[in-house]
Design a protein around this nucleic acid. Structure first.
Ligand code: NAD
Ligand code: NAD
Lengths: 206, 206
DNA sequence: TTTAGCTTGTGAAGAAATTCACAAGATCGT
DNA sequence: ACGATCTTGTGAATTTCTTCACAAGCTAAA
């Protein structure tokens, strides 16, 4: 399969969100132009993005909202439940454990892990907090798909190494550090400080 | 000034982080190659990124670590304190209010605002929670630079409109929605669900 | 059935970002 | 002082991403 750019996948994700809004409002078709307006892009971009995966529209009409959402969910791999573990039962880990947006999309949080014995054994919003020493055994048994890394920055790489060794192939990192992983492991970093610095740059350069 | 790409600014932010590590370890010079290795990019990319702003290196030697960090901080606008307010004193707002990473970088959180009267008047980790009705008056007085939006998705656009009307020119949005703002207002969105969907896509496409 | 009016799907063109490649400047050891 | 060895800074080449532009397909109305 042709390589799909990251930016394309992000836009597909955005389109799906609008489609769900449209579905909720009972609209049955949508044009690439309308989708583009919502997503802050162009209609040609929308059509090009979709064209990598097939032809879903009807000329003269647009796209069927339920059909296109279904196809986008398939493309994005959202047709199934993904099993997630959280590494680091701290403040941001707690906020994420709470977060309904994840569960709604089919991301099921199995457990949190922490190295602090005081946190182990407690619950984080109904999610058990386990000792990090159990990780490898638990992963072999429960086969989580995705690790969310919310440990302090200086422990992030070693934590990633740990989950990679345990066999997990995808991680979402919240520590403000560039992480290094083998090629068959996908790591995405959410770096809030970087975003704020982008705003700072924008403010001083106008 | 030539328009600087978003991706360039993000990389500068990453370089600065490594430089601070290097500084802490007492190293005095660094090459574009080393910087590239840390940041997962190429040395040519590093040099090109820096070249938009001047020539900071010494041929044959590399870059002076303290000098380059200083310059990067200047470029990114981190030479000053930025005043930040949080809109939505919920779970993610609380985690951010706590977050030391912001303060360390010169982002000072003045206050949080919420529409829920039960939250107003309390403290969120030492930060006062104020009624949203006071926003416009407070902004006129305290002149915050950046609004962090952590309200539910369906209130995000109206909240952005509110802070824009009050005169704020930059916002960091955590709600999973595409926001629309006038051209002179910079909005960055941190969309965690989108990142997770990117992982999902990567997992099914291998 | 024909025509008018939309909107898709997609090559081709254009723009933007990245990588190449090398001259030029700096250091170091002899 | 000279040659060997680095590493920067930057045009040019290349690759990647976006936008253009239009033929082709679908609908609805006459
Ligand atoms: N709080 C925020 O809003 C926020 C925002 C952006 C990024 N972050 C980043 O997220 C990370 C966590 O931040 P936080 O505010 O939640 O910090 P925190 O101190 O509240 O939580 C960190 C948790 O990780 C645990 N931990 C430490 N080392 C560990 C290890 N080796 N293995 C397992 N668990 C370990 C600690 O016991 C603690 O419970 C940091 O890297 C931070 O920079 C936080
Ligand atoms: N919790 C997470 O980890 C997480 C992660 C990613 C994104 N988000 C997003 O962040 C936002 C907040 O999530 P949360 O989990 O903190 O929810 P929350 O319900 O804990 O907090 C939302 C807060 O906003 C306040 N609020 C509601 N409408 C408001 C308005 N019009 N003006 C001012 N305040 C208002 C509420 O009173 C509440 O205190 C949501 O959009 C969510 O999708 C949350």
């Amino acid at each position: 399969m042709k390589r799909i750019a990251d930016s394309t996948v992000r836009r597909l994700s955005a389109y799906l969100r609008f489609l769900e809004d449209f579905e909720a409002r009972g609209l049955s078709t949508i044009s690439s132009d309308e989708l583009a307006r919502q997503g802050g892009t162009t209609s040609a971009q929308v059509r090009k993005d979709l064209s990598f995966f097939g032809s879903f529209g009807k000329r003269g009409l647009g796209y069927s909202v339920p059909e296109l959402s279904t196809r986008l969910r398939e493309i994005l791999g959202l047709g199934r439940e993904w099993r997630v573990i959280i590494l680091g039962a701290g403040k941001i880990g707690a906020a994420l454990a709470h977060y309904e947006g994840f569960r709604q999309r089919g991301f099921q949080i199995l457990a949190a892990y922490d190295s602090n014995p005081e946190k182990v054994g407690r619950k984080l919003e109904g999610i058990p907090v386990r000792g990090i020493a159990h990780l490898e055994r638990d992963v072999a048994k429960e086969k989580p798909d995705i690790a969310v890394i919310t440990v302090p920055a200086d422990a992030a790489q070693q934590t990633l190494d740990l989950v990679v060794r345990a066999g997990i192939k995808a991680a979402l990192n919240f520590a403000p550090t560039q992480l290094h992983a083998p090629a068959d492991v996908t790591v995405k970093t959410v770096n809030m400080a970087m975003e704020l610095e982008g705003l700072s740059f924008a403010l001083v350069n106008r």
